[in-house]
Design a protein around this nucleic acid. Structure first.
Length: 606
RNA sequence: CGGGAUGUAGCGCAGCUUGGUAGCGCACUUCGUUCGGGACGAAGGGGCCGCAGGUUCGAAUCCUGUCAUCCCGACCA
């Protein structure tokens, strides 16, 4: 392919909209153009990258026995109502684009395909003899992201590989999950990416076990906490750790009232009275809103030196409040909200776990009882300092039981870098950032039960199918590769996913000898199965070198001054290493090197 | 949605405070000189100054509204 015919438009200046290196480089090097917020055109060079990634994904999925398919993006709301997700996905902070057709039917633009696939499974799968099956597709997904960001990293339209497996029992599901885990590791490795598997929260998709695959990069949106020994890694949303022992509070029976004027924070309280944060319990009041329109006040008790993990909190609330439909949001309660609800103002900043349900009586809409939750680190304290539920006062020496109703215990604390690990107290969690490029879930029977997808087992009894689901963000993966593989001059594609493998640069198009030799080399390389670009533009050599570096083709062949003597230069993009060699031997040598790179040596050595 | 910022040529920006009918660099076209790491000179083309109102003899500039985009938080592959 000739560069003059490639519609290649590179930019010398960084576009103002791009923040992170990969986004800047994809724009500058002519791989993508923004069409709208979170909506990008994949230009020809990027499309080749995406197809290469897709081909690797396809090979590895096929190798597991999965079947490729293509499901509709336009999905009837009725399916989503049956799974109970229509409200959650369209109302409130819902991310599903939805519309009415001309008959007034309600449709959604697929953000994911559990509903469709499960409906199909209900239709087609009748007997254990048909199981297991795994279907996958590589297709555009639509999500009305609250904040699209970083180019392809978080687009509103993006390419995803999603797979769904169906099993007769949980053991078989777990086996398939393990097979997918291995396939995923091979996919990322073959794409030349350094990726780590971490324990994850399963979020809106639901289900039990789930694992994310993170491409490590400073620009990643996720915080990973991992032990140095490599035995534990988790998304911070999910991560658990040991809590440091609290310093015991000298027992003061009965609890005494302490005047604490204006000391609304743990920090202010402790510095004024010489307490340690671990001797205190902080109480948060939040409001949980549900799809049904209901709202429940939640009282959360944490040890004063610990932080709330909002994902764990949302999970704990969802698990305990099943009747109101999906949990839409959990937000701190503000004085304005109390006023609007018709309640008198609470002494915010001085709350204790014994805040009375009586304070909720007479409210307009909220449920009249608190959901009382506590993290074990707070619940384990035998005596503590907490708010007195009275303005400018705290209680010293409070303890659980009696007037202090014992709360429901749930893991609610956010693990932090530096915390000791559960599996080995000698290990401390370390933080790094990652880009989530893959996620695998054991869904269990959540969707199959809701959508009545059942099969007849060996004993002739009908039961819901066991399901797994497995995603890879294909377009995100391509950008993550750039984030991980670039330098000051541009992109350094891992060879297996590079848009072209070799670029032949004619230093001076006015030298017929150079042009002729370059064309011969292009033909020889192509005959050897190499994907070759020929830079035949009437530009100065410097411009072409800059562009070649910017677009990141792994190997560059320069046909220049030595052309008359049959000498050319070979440059490796990643290392910058160059060698002079005879044009006659170049094709064979390069074909061998590229073939080795395709076999998975595209990954960097470090 | 909350907080912050920005909309002027394809890209990056100046001009706005102090109204007088738009400019710089890159890119693009033509010619010449150059020709191995984003050359130089000359000549060109390209702008409802985001949109709509208002103030004014006159608005990119002042006022009001609106839309869009980007950044910081909650969502996710």
């Amino acid at each position: 392919m000739r560069v003059s015919r490639l519609m290649l438009v590179t930019l010398r200046d960084d576009p103002a909209e791009a923040e992170i290196p990969s986004h800047r480089l994809l724009l500058r090097a002519g791989y993508i153009r923004r069409i709208g917020s979170g909506i990008y055109a994949y230009l020809p060079l990027l499309w080749r990258v995406l197809q290469k990634v897709s081909a690797i994904v396809r090979e590895e999925m096929n190798a597991t026995g999965a079947l490729e398919t293509l499901l509709p993006q336009l999905q009837p709301s009725e399916l989503w109502e049956r799974s109970g997700r229509w409200q959650g996905y369209t109302a409130g902070e819902g991310i599903m684009f939805h519309l009415l057709d001309r008959q007034g039917r309600s449709l959604g633009l697929g953000p994911t395909h559990e509903e469709v696939i499960t409906a199909l499974a209900a239709d087609l799968l009748r007997s254990y003899r048909q199981l297991p099956v795994c279907l996958y597709q590589i297709q555009t997904k639509f999500r009305d992201e609250i904040r699209p960001r970083f180019g392809l990293m978080r687009g509103r339209e993006f390419i995803m590989k999603d797979a769904y497996s169906f099993h007769a029992d949980e053991q078989d599901l777990k086996a398939a999950y393990g097979v997918m885990d291995e396939a995923y590791r091979r996919i990322f490795e073959r794409c030349g990416l350094r990726a780590v598997a971490v324990e994850a929260d399963s979020g809106a998709i639901g289900g039990s076990a789930s694992q994310e695959f993170m491409v490590t990069a400073d620009a990643g949106e996720d915080l990973i906490l991992a032990s140095p020994d490599g035995r534990y890694a988790a998304n911070q949303e999910r991560a658990c750790s040991r809590v440091e022992p609290a310093r015991p509070l000298p027992v003061a029976t009965p609890p005494t009232l302490l005047a604490t004027p204006g000391q609304r924070s743990i920090e202010a309280l402790c510095s004024a009275h010489g307490f340690e944060p671990s001797q205190t319990v902080k109480v948060l009041v939040l409001l949980a809103r549900f799809a049904s329109g209901g709202a429940k006040p939640v009282l959360v008790s944490l040890r004063g030196d610990q932080c709330l993990n909002t994902v764990k909190l949302a999970n704990a609330i969802s698990a305990r409040c099943t009747e109101g439909g999906a949990l839409l949001s959990v937000e701190p309660i503000t004085p304005e909200q109390l006023l609007a609800e018709g309640l008198e103002c609470w002494p915010l900043g001085f709350l204790g776990p014994h805040l009375s349900d009586a304070l909720l009586q007479g409210g307009a809409n909220w449920q009249p009882r608190f959901l009382r939750l506590a993290d074990p680190s707070a619940a384990d304290l035998s005596a503590f300092v907490c708010g007195a539920n009275r303005l400018d006062h705290h209680l010293v020496g409070a303890c659980w039981g009696g007037a202090m109703p014992t709360p429901d215990i749930a893991d609610l604390r956010a693990a932090q870098p530096g915390d000791r690990c559960l599996h080995d107290p000698e290990q401390r969690l370390e933080a790094s950032r990652g880009i989530e490029v893959g996620h695998i879930f054991q869904l269990g029977r959540k969707y199959s039960s809701a959508l009545e997808a059942s099969f007849t087992n060996e004993s002739g009894v009908e039961e819901p199918l066991w399901m797994g689901c497995y995603g890879i963000g294909v377009s995100r993966l391509a950008q993550a590769a750039v984030e991980q593989h670039h330098d000051a001059n541009g992109i350094c594609w891992p060879l297996p996913i590079a848009p072209y493998e070799v670029i032949v640069v004619v230093a001076n198009m006015q030298e017929p000898a150079q042009v002729a030799l370059a064309e011969r080399l292009e033909a020889a390389l192509e005959a050897g199965g190499i994907e070759v670009l020929l830079d035949d533009r009437p530009e100065r050599a410097g411009v072409k070198f800059k562009d070649a570096d910017l677009i990141g083709i792994p190997w560059r062949v320069v046909v220049g001054r030595g052309a008359a003597q049959g000498q050319v230069e070979l440059v490796e993009r990643r290392s910058g290493e160059r060698q002079e060699l005879a044009a006659a031997v170049l094709p064979a040598q390069l074909i061998a090197v590229v073939a080795a790179g395709r076999r998975g040596k595209g990954a960097p050595s470090r």
